[in-house]
Write a protein that binds this DNA or RNA. Structure first.
Lengths: 158, 158
DNA sequence: GTCAGTGCAAACTTTTTGCAACTAC
DNA sequence: GTAGTTGCAAAAAGTTTGCACTGAC
């Protein structure tokens, strides 16, 4: 994504947050704004720790309690998605990003995004009785090409 | 599933485990067998705690360390799947069960299984370059019918 | 001025690790 | 007998909570 697009989606996210807060008589605090900006500084998936580190680099200290509550809120606002593809929770910005899926290497833990139009199409056509869907998550677990090569080099033990 | 089918898939799982262990010169211990049997006593998803409780009921004490290492192994053998649809890790037997997906209610946390042939078909036709897939996981997050009704009764706050 | 928001530290939950004793082979 | 396995307890990792102080409105 180019810089202009990133900037405008960042603006959209700030507007969404502001509207959300106003509607609930909650407050626009420097911490919430800084966390939101930090998120737009990060490419791809991140954990709470990633955000914390990024903010510390900028000499803007925010407590873990605030980080957790803010990320919860951002999920509710619809600015980030929360993922669970490992023991630690991960997040990803969903404003200004294309819909995509994830493939996870069981060997090295690496997560790659991938797009697949057939999947998107199938998703759109899915209807569910007695359930109001908000969002979909699709994961493929397996072995990435790097780990495959590494394993093939070794004598086949398994 | 009827009892005969359950029993035969339990036998298959025991055979898989035994072969896995023998191939690696690892040992068939009473703990591993008991854990495996406990898993076949459980219907649907479970956590490590569920397994522990089930074993305690049967007066068969197994330490958490052993439970964690055994479940890791069973995932590797291909007897159970590991799921992450919330902050705690869940498992599900995958021997003697039909392939299916999960929908998760964001309100009450309930997880429902569902089958969808269109999805299965799409999965089977998916090919991936540079990645060897082992298994797929597909989640739909949203609101279940019970929680929808409950929310509609209240004055709409959000 | 009020009450939501924050930082801090303690508590809690889940999972991992180190080590001595045990046991499957 | 040997080396893999177990239980226990301590430690680690991730997340939540309580409370006094602060600051957005």
């Amino acid at each position: 994504m180019d810089d202009d697009k990133l900037k405008s989606s960042q603006q959209i996210a700030h507007d969404m947050l502001r509207d959300y807060l106003h509607a609930r008589r909650l407050r626009v605090t420097p911490e919430r704004c800084a966390i939101l900006d930090a998120i737009f500084d990060i490419e791809g998936h991140f954990t709470i720790e990633t955000v914390s580190n990024r903010l510390e680099e900028q000499r803007f200290h925010v407590s873990m309690a605030t980080l957790y509550s803010s990320l919860d809120m951002f999920v509710d606002v619809g600015i980030v998605n929360r993922y669970y593809f490992g023991s630690t929770v991960r997040y990803e910005r969903c404003i200004g990003t294309e819909p995509h899926f994830h493939r996870i290497c069981k060997e090295c833990g690496q997560v790659q995004d991938f797009r697949n139009d057939r999947w998107l199409h199938t998703m759109e056509q899915t209807t569910l009785r007695g359930f109001k869907p908000d969002y979909y998550q699709f994961y493929i677990y397996g072995t990435c090409s790097k780990c495959l090569r590494r394993k093939n080099k070794k004598t086949v033990k398994k």
